[in-house]
Design a protein around this nucleic acid. Structure first.
Length: 854
RNA sequence: GCUCGGGUGGUGGAAUGGCAGACACGAAGGUCUUAGAAGCCUUUGCCGUAAGGCGUGCAGGUUCGAGUCCUGUCCCGAGCACCA
């Protein structure tokens, strides 16, 4: 039932239809085998305390239009939403107020939900998920166990980014220009024991499979660059002091090996101390200390001069036996390749700069023609013994092969991608389902339950004692967070969980996962042993790595999703979210998905076939919306003043979905006027159907033509996510209807159907008032007939020497000669042809006639 | 520095190599009204009374024809940044 308002009273209409949809459960996703499926997914939000700004509904409106359109096209649509609710802001709030972060999180979720519901999105709310819900993170933990058992999770003490302000470590990806991505606080290096996921084991596949996904090219390139695959060779240099060992280096340019005039080790390289000659020890040691004290920001600052010290040691070039000096310099990084390089100053910009600074020799080995050094380009080898005259690509292979044959080198591949630092010293995250036990107890478990453990034990050693990681049995999940006395991290590199002794120090039953505080007597029965829980929690990325799978079957108590659900819904057909996740979330999720694929748990190797990034909506001032600038626009305000249909329409009309666009409060009037116009064409001032609409009333041929063109364009534009031009086409059509004296009821209904995905509330209201049955969302999408807009005449444009000189409506089959005759007869065109010699005629049938004269 | 993406009226933007500026916003004039609001009609890239000319950051090129393709250059935005 429609409302009874006479004017377009969106304040009455919008809540009315939202209630109607909810009551009738219209957007429930059913796995209907008789229909094709369409799974359209938004990147689920972090429910912050600030609530939504108009940027959020931009992407959500786009996916909602697709969802509603696909339903009308006969698809069974899955369009879910949930909450990525673990995270720092809730925890910081908890630290400040002493209240449990869950309470704050739930408040924020309630507010987000209210706001999102008021926007009229057709989400299946029965599938709502929340990453902080133990019924959800049970499976996050379960997936971690699979990684653990496969040897893809390990513990390592490594220099990590530590943020004193946030009191936690951060992943490489969370550090931007020496500051935390969240909050912008300074970070420093610290050596801490960390959980790490072996994402590098999937580097090749993560790179190769990018070819199979329909993603923005820029995002693919960013992932490619992040993975940073480079082919080259590992080459061994003998040292002048063989007792110290040999020096292994990685290079992508084995063809320039003859041009190596010195070697460089990273300050942290393990051979530095051993090979430095006594008289250089003091200087080298001082340099290493200085380098260690530098922040990474200082070390990677390109503007600074290069620095380094000579070790006094020498190595021998394996191709020509040349004796080259070994330096230590911090422009060589310890974490990449072997942490050592051969320096070829003639053909590497960095080596060149360093060589000039320290007056080291420069030997050119690639012919650069007139180009100056350093020369990085292609060329033929010179000064390279037996390789002279060879093109570089050939030389690369030959030199590598020769070294390999002699056992002093081999072709290898290196990646910039590092293993994923997966632990955080926070409270508000998923606890690791891991306990630490002694070597002796680990042996017992190995004998009793070998399948629960990875092939190689995960261990760490502290104060001479080695601790062994044991996973909780899957049946014991979820491992929930204990109540704590303080949410403040300890500040020593352990999470607040480390202070909860009763939870931490336990008797642990490895058969059942049961636990008792260690302060109580050891429980009777088999399987009990002394253990200490892991105190780290997982990063926020964990929950978002697989949520798109949980939506398929969100309440399943025995699996991440049932095989039926996985088979029917598969993975999202369209995934829409911000470009800021180009490498983080999207790379992590791909990694987990591939692991699940290898385990036979998901049917595809890639999680997101088609990805689209909506652009950012800037404030009125053209700056990014932020509280401090005071340029934030809340959807609540617009919904109150103009209604959500207007907001949705305006967000889509602003410009291309992917573009960065400033918010213009005056522009919203335009689309609001459009909806008012649609209303007036359908409903008269008395609230009854506009008398110009009638079942018998035939449309003019022009209106019929335009209707069919509009149906086609709106459909095509929705499929291609070009909503701005779809809306302008509807505006053109409505402007034409306004001038028409009569409108056929079916035409008005078709228009309402076209508008429905964009402005669903007004569409329901008008659909209902025009006698439409049930809901416009269940009506099949109107079909266009191409013959309806194929007309007998087309407009032919006349050009003289490429300049537009006139046009004329001509019959469709007009030939070139006929067209030329038309041109000569056309009063606007004829003068330009008079007395001129026609040199050439270009004729595009039905489009253009270009006459080249004189 | 490197790699991408983009520069079109007063504004947001539209244009399979074929009428540049669709559709909107804003502005001006008109109509209706006691008056206003809303609506409707007209105009609205620049120069010019007009005829006409010029015009898609700038300079070239390819083409019968270029916003669109190519070369160079400037500006803006994004990403990467000593990864050997």
């Amino acid at each position: 039932m429609a409302t009874t308002c006479t004017d377009y009273n969106f304040r009455q209409i919008e809540p009315h239809w939202q209630t109607f949809w909810e009551k009738n459960d219209l957007f429930r996703a059913d796995p209907d085998l008789s229909k094709p499926k369409y799974y359209v997914l938004d990147m689920f939000p972090y429910p912050s305390g600030a609530g939504l700004h108009v940027g959020h509904p931009e992407g959500y409106t786009a996916t909602d239009i697709l969802a509603r359109y696909k339903r009308a096209r006969g698809f069974s649509v899955l369009h879910p939403i949930g909450w990525d609710a673990f995270g720092l802001p809730a925890e910081q709030h908890a630290v400040k107020t002493g209240t449990h972060p869950a309470a704050n999180t739930q408040n924020n979720i309630a507010n987000f939900k209210r706001q999102i519901k008021s926007l009229g999105f057709s989400y299946d709310w029965d599938r709502e998920i929340d990453t902080t819900d133990p019924r959800y993170f049970r499976w996050t933990q379960w997936i971690f166990l699979q990684l653990f058992r496969r040897g893809l999770a390990y513990v390592d003490e490594r220099p990590v980014w530590w943020c004193p302000e946030l009191r936690t470590v951060l992943a490489n990806e969370e550090v931007v220009d020496g500051r935390s991505e969240v909050g912008g606080f300074p970070v420093e290096r610290r050596n801490l024991r960390q959980w790490v996921l072996r994402i590098t084991a999937y580097a090749d596949r993560l790179l190769a499979d990018l070819a199979d996904v329909d993603w923005p090219e820029s995002t693919k390139r960013m992932q490619e660059a992040w993975i940073g695959r480079s082919e080259g060779a590992e080459i061994q240099f003998e040292l002048a002091t063989p007792a110290v060992g040999t020096l292994k280096i990685f290079t992508t340019r084995p063809d320039t090996l003859y041009g190596c005039t010195y070697m460089v080790l990273a300050p942290e390289h393990p051979l530095v101390a051993g090979l430095t000659v006594p008289e250089q020890q003091a200087e080298v040691e001082a340099y290493r200390r200085k380098a260690a004290a530098k922040s990474d920001l200082e070390r990677t600052d390109l503007a600074k001069e290069k620095s380094g010290v000579f070790t006094g040691a020498y190595a021998f070039n394996p191709v020509n036996g040349a004796r080259v000096p070994i330096w230590v310099a911090d422009y060589v990084l310890t974490g990449y390749g072997t942490g050592a390089i051969m320096a070829v100053p003639a053909h590497d910009a960095r080596d060149h700069e360093f060589a000039l600074q320290y007056s080291l020799p420069i030997v050119q080995v690639i012919d650069s023609g007139p180009a100056p050094l350093p020369y990085l380009g292609d060329g033929v080898l010179i000064n390279s013994g037996g390789c002279n005259g060879q093109p570089w690509a050939e030389a690369k292979q030959k030199i590598t092969a020769d070294l390999a044959a002699r056992g002093v080198g081999r072709a290898t591949v290196n990646y910039k991608l590092r293993d994923w630092l997966f632990s955080r010293q926070r409270y508000w995250g998923e606890p690791f389902p891991i306990v630490w036990v002694s070597a002796e107890d680990y042996g017992r478990i190995q004998t009793a339950r070998p399948t629960a453990l990875p092939d190689a034990p995960v261990t760490y050693t502290q104060a001479g004692v080695t601790h062994y990681a044991v996973a909780l049995p899957a049946e014991a999940l979820p491992l929930e967070l204990p109540q704590v006395h303080s949410y403040l991290p300890s500040g020593t590199g352990e999470s607040p969980l480390a202070n909860e002794t009763a939870w931490l120090e336990i008797w642990f039953n490895f058969e059942t996962g049961a636990a008792q505080p260690a302060s109580t007597p050891k429980p009777p029965g088999p399987g009990w042993l002394r253990a200490r829980r892991e105190t780290n929690t997982m990063p926020q990325w964990a929950g978002s790595c697989w949520y798109y799978l949980r939506f398929l079957d969100p309440r399943n108590p025995s699996a991440i999703a049932s095989p039926d659900a996985l088979r029917y819904w598969g993975t999202p057909d369209l995934y829409v979210g911000g470009a800021e996740h180009a490498v983080l979330h999207l790379l992590y999720a791909r990694f987990w998905h591939k692991v699940l694929f290898d385990l036979g748990l998901v049917p595809t190797a890639e999680p997101f076939k088609k990805l689209f990034h909506q652009g950012i909506i800037l404030g009125e001032d053209g700056e990014k919306m932020s509280k401090s600038r005071g340029n934030v626009v809340s959807p609540d305000t617009i919904i109150e003043s103009h209604g959500t249909d207007t907001l949705r329409l305006y967000l889509m009309f602003l410009g291309p979905l992917e573009a960065m666009k400033p918010w213009n409060p005056r522009g919203i009037e335009g689309v609001h006027r459009f909806l008012l116009k649609v209303w007036r064409e359908c409903i008269g001032p008395d609230g009854a159907i506009n008398p110009k609409i009638s079942d018998g009333g035939g449309d003019s041929p022009e209106i019929t033509k335009l209707l069919h063109e509009t149906i086609k364009k709106v459909g095509d534009d929705i499929e291609n996510l070009r909503f701005n031009t779809a809306i302008s086409q509807m505006m053109i059509f409505v402007n034409a209807l306004q001038k028409a004296p009569v409108i056929a009821t079916d035409t008005a209904r078709a228009l309402i159907q076209l508008i429905a995905p964009f402005a669903p509330h007004i569409a329901e209201e008008l659909w209902n008032r025009l006698g439409g049955q049930e809901s416009v969302t269940t009506a099949p999408w109107p079909k266009y007939q191409a013959e309806k807009f194929a007309t007998a005449e087309t407009k032919l444009v006349f050009q003289i020497n490429g300049k537009h000189r006139g046009d004329q409506s001509v019959a469709v089959g007009t030939t070139q000669d006929e067209a030329l005759a038309h041109a000569k007869a056309n009063p606007r065109v004829a003068p330009y042809l008079l007395g001129k010699t026609v040199k050439r005629v270009i004729f595009v049938p039905g489009k253009i006639l270009n006459v080249v004269v004189e």
